[in-house]
Write a protein that binds this DNA or RNA. Sequence first.
DNA 1: AAGGAATTTGCAAACCATTCTCATTGGCAT
DNA 2: ATGCCAATGAGAATGGTTTGCAAATTCCTT
Lengths: 150, 150
Amino acid sequence: MAEGLSAFDNICNRLRNHSYKLTPQRQTILRTFLQHVDVHLSAEDVYMLVKHQYPEIGLATVYRTLDILADIGVLQKNDFGDGRSRYEFTRTDEHHHHHLICLRCGSVSEFDDDLLESLETIITKKTGFEVHDHDLKFYGHCQSCQKELS
Amino acid sequence: MAEGLSAFDNICNRLRNHSYKLTPQRQTILRTFLQHVDVHLSAEDVYMLVKHQYPEIGLATVYRTLDILADIGVLQKNDFGDGRSRYEFTRTDEHHHHHLICLRCGSVSEFDDDLLESLETIITKKTGFEVHDHDLKFYGHCQSCQKELS
DNA sequence: AAGGAATTTGCAAACCATTCTCATTGGCAT
DNA sequence: ATGCCAATGAGAATGGTTTGCAAATTCCTT
Ligand SMILES: [Mn+2]
Ligand SMILES: [Mn+2]
Ligand SMILES: [Zn+2]
Ligand SMILES: [Zn+2]
């Protein structure tokens, strides 16, 4: 990561390095994510947010851009089981975080933990399956729902 | 689990206890799963299999039955990211198993491990989120794909 | 055994997030 | 500035899943 480069510029370079053109649509979508860390945005969410700054944008372009940004590792694509994919900015620090999904209100919170790196090694040794990545979700009730249910 | 009761009869009782009617369609679907442990069947898979024994069955009925059986805990519904839900018989014996999904050929294998029960407790203590269940998937390359890629 | 209310079924149409088609626009290397 | 080709926007298409509805069936009550 070069000095004096904003996260924005850094990712723009990354796009160029992958020979993707730097269109205003892509820049706007990128800026939107930089303004929304810690949120899990759906394509529709992004579309709405971007439309304020760029009313002519098409939903298909949003989908295409999210795809690209996930492909080059800028975004992480999640499936929380609500029928749509949700994207978040990839954390710069490297260890994984897991998601806690409330079965009642659908809220998603996070939990940091890198315990699973060792489990990956165990699996590869035991089964021969070469693990590249993992995805861990917990389902249950968030604190506020616990209160309302009691 | 009462003596002398087959797994089939046992589940039929479970359906009755939840005041679901015991239709021949549901019985046929259930028998199909009892003949296909260790497989992850999609609704379409089940539809095809059941159609041999029960040609008049409708796809919607399959979906509705899978929903019910998952609801009463007989089946486990999985999402392996291939755009359709996949169901498997809920293991009667022990704990959770995790899925190893090959990014190249899409094959799904399994890994038994109950390490995560303790992690659930840790999460509840640390965050207050009341964990009921979890879902852990590993992505990578299966052994045969590793060979073909080298 | 028969009656009847409530479920369940099969079919087709609807749903809905995502992808695709294609004519037009625009980024960027030269 | 020029030209090639990727990228865009609009709308149509896709495909797994759900839903509306009339007819059939389960199963509880007599
Ligand atoms: Mn997250
Ligand atoms: Mn399994
Ligand atoms: Zn909640
Ligand atoms: Zn494979």
